Simulated assay, not measured.
Amino acid sequence: MFDVAIIGAGPAGASAALFTAKARKKTLLIDNDKGMTRRALLLNYYGVKEIDGPDMVDIGLKQAESFGAELINDTAVDLKKAGDTIQIETENGQYEAKHVILATGATVNFAEKIGVQTKEGTEPRIKKVVDVDAAGKTNIDGVWAAGTCAGMSVHAIITAGDGAKVAINVISELNGERYVDHDILEK
């Protein structure tokens, strides 16, 4: 069983996976490689002069995997609560996790299918978003959402930050106390 399963591996999902895996939480990252960041050119990402979307996604996935996140190329098709466990069904398998983070980008079809409440979106071309609280929690216990699907701006830097924020909140809940991750530069 995974501590955290993340559905979607764009900036929000990969950022969340990086944080959860680095915190030594057994992390599964499920992605079908159809995200909009694969079609982007990023000229406004802080600290990076210019990067194309495919490179950014690949670097983010490698970072998450370097800390132990397990990446599978698959599509989630169903999710069910079973006590304290969440069962995720994909086109090619089944997985269990204690927590799930939805990071499905511009689409909420999967969220609606599994009973997650949605609301009207505020971004151009984003009709609906997942209804989350300030921490990223949805109406289903143990299911969280981050990034554009959770109502954040479609800008990669914003969705990445939201993925990190939600991951920190999930880690904190798993640990039973507030989690902080600061690396120190050694001289």
Rank of each mutant, 00 (worst) to 15 (best):
Ile126Asp: 00
His99Ile: 09
Gly35Trp: 11
Val143Lys: 01
Val57Thr: 08
Arg178Val: 13
Ala156Thr: 12
Val132Gly: 02
Asp141Gln: 07
Gln63His: 12
Gln94Leu: 11
Phe110Pro: 02
Gln117Lys: 03
Tyr95Phe: 14
Phe67Trp: 04
Asp3Ser: 06
Thr159Cys: 14
Lys187Tyr: 00
Ala12Glu: 12
Thr37Pro: 02
Gly176Trp: 04
Asp58Trp: 07
Ile184Tyr: 09
Val180Ser: 06
Asn44Leu: 03
Ala40Asn: 09
Gly142Met: 01
Lys119Thr: 14
Ala164Cys: 11
Asp55Trp: 00
Thr37Ile: 15
Ile171Ser: 03
Lys119Pro: 07
Ser15Leu: 13
Asn32Ser: 14
Leu29Lys: 07
Ala145Gly: 07
Ser15Val: 15
Arg125Trp: 08
Met1Asn: 12
Gly53Thr: 14
Gly121Phe: 10
Ala160Val: 12
Thr118Asn: 00
Glu112Asn: 01
Val170Tyr: 07
Ile184Glu: 14
Phe2Tyr: 15
Gln117Asp: 12
Asn92Tyr: 11
Lys113Arg: 05
His155Tyr: 14
Lys62Cys: 05
Leu18Met: 13
Glu65Leu: 05
Asp78Ile: 04
Glu91Cys: 03
Gly60Lys: 09
Ala12Tyr: 11
Leu79Cys: 13
Val129Asn: 02
Arg178Glu: 07
Val77Gln: 08
Val130Asp: 05
Ser15Met: 15
Ile72Ala: 01
Gly53Gln: 11
Lys62Asn: 07
Ile158Gln: 02
Tyr45Asp: 08
Ile158Ser: 09
Lys128Asn: 04
Leu43Arg: 07
Val180Met: 02
Thr122Ile: 15
Gly136Pro: 05
Ala14Glu: 03
Ile114Ser: 10
His182Leu: 15
Asn32Met: 12
Ala134Cys: 01
Val154Arg: 05
Pro124Lys: 10
Gly151Thr: 08
Ile168Ala: 06
Glu112Asp: 09
Lys34Tyr: 00
Ile86Leu: 15
Leu18Trp: 05
Val108Ser: 06
Glu186Trp: 15
Leu42Arg: 03
Thr75Asn: 06
Thr138Arg: 01
Thr37Phe: 09
Met56His: 09
Asp133Val: 13
Gly53Phe: 04
Val100Arg: 04
Gln63Cys: 01
Leu71Ile: 15
Asp52Tyr: 14
Val132Gln: 01
Lys25Cys: 09
Glu112Gln: 14
Thr85Trp: 14
Gly35Gln: 10
Ala145Arg: 02
Lys26His: 02
Gln117Pro: 03
Asp33Asn: 13
Glu91His: 02
Leu18Tyr: 14
Gly93Arg: 03
Asp3Cys: 09
Arg39Gly: 00
Asp141Trp: 04
Glu50Gly: 05
Ala12Cys: 10
Arg125Cys: 09
Ser66Gly: 00
Gly10Leu: 07
Asp141Val: 05
Ala97Phe: 13
Glu177His: 03
Lys165Ile: 05
Ala164Trp: 05
Ile114Asp: 07
Lys34Leu: 09
Lys26Met: 15
Tyr95His: 13
Leu79Pro: 08
Ala103Lys: 05
Ala156Trp: 06
Gly60Trp: 13
Met1Arg: 04
Val48Pro: 06
Phe110Gln: 01
Ala76His: 07
Ile72Met: 00
Pro54Ala: 11
